[in-house]
Design a protein around this nucleic acid. Structure first.
Lengths: 119, 119
DNA sequence: CGGCATCCATGGAGATACTG
DNA sequence: CAGTATCTCCATGGATGCCG
């Protein structure tokens, strides 16, 4: 249903998905990155999820996939200008997390103690 | 599991939850806001979800809840300094969404046409 | 990568407490 | 009966992950 309540709402839908923000972030770190390297960078993803989210980012015009059609297969991913601009908007979140990591860690440890598992 | 892979990862876990970024954003718009008003601002939330996410934000030290212990009930919510700093980090995302809303809308319309439903 | 099984977040409906 | 704030039970859909 087109029609977002505000700009933030629109952005959130674009980066909806457990790994998309991290993918964008790592793609922004440097030039084109090969699939395997990306897989290693985004720790914890399964191949299925990584492929799936990359494909969505690609159809959304944020990521560009290049298949060199070589043997052995060689494929790399990079950001489109649109994707780059979004990745840049993520930088403050990254900074916030870095600056407050101790605090966040502490709070999450508490939750873990209370609930058994986090959320 | 304490131990985040990076700052962005830490932040993402804090704002995990469909409505948390929006809640933080609206709380940052002005002074303390009453529950009912917040409910109206965050369009689409159910009472259950709003309460639940507010409680998590509160235990995470991002939101301050004030209960005036009156009858009929009167409660309002505001940001802690930590919450405010996070809300400020969300501003670029909001701007990005606003600037690219047309593009985002178009892309999502395509997805809708292909899949029947989004994602 | 496609199926299949699973698990958790989301959401709806109803209940509560108290007053005007 | 209307209004405010919150909680609990239950249903379900969609995201996630494992396996071939």
């Amino acid at each position: 249903m087109p029609g977002f309540t505000c700009g933030l709402d629109a952005t959130l839908r674009v980066i909806a998905g457990k790994w998309k923000p991290l993918i964008l972030y790592f793609l922004a770190q440097g030039g084109p990155i090969r699939y395997g390297a990306l897989r290693r960078a985004v720790r914890g993803v399964s191949d299925k999820m990584l492929i799936q989210q990359l494909k969505e980012l690609e159809t959304d015009g944020l990521v560009k996939r290049t298949d060199y059609k070589e043997i052995p297969p060689r494929v790399d991913y990079s950001l489109t200008p649109l994707g780059l601009s979004l990745a840049e908007a993520l930088v403050p979140l990254c900074i916030w997390g870095t600056e407050n990591m101790a605090e966040v860690t502490r709070v999450f440890a508490l939750r873990e103690a209370l609930n058994g598992k986090i959320r």
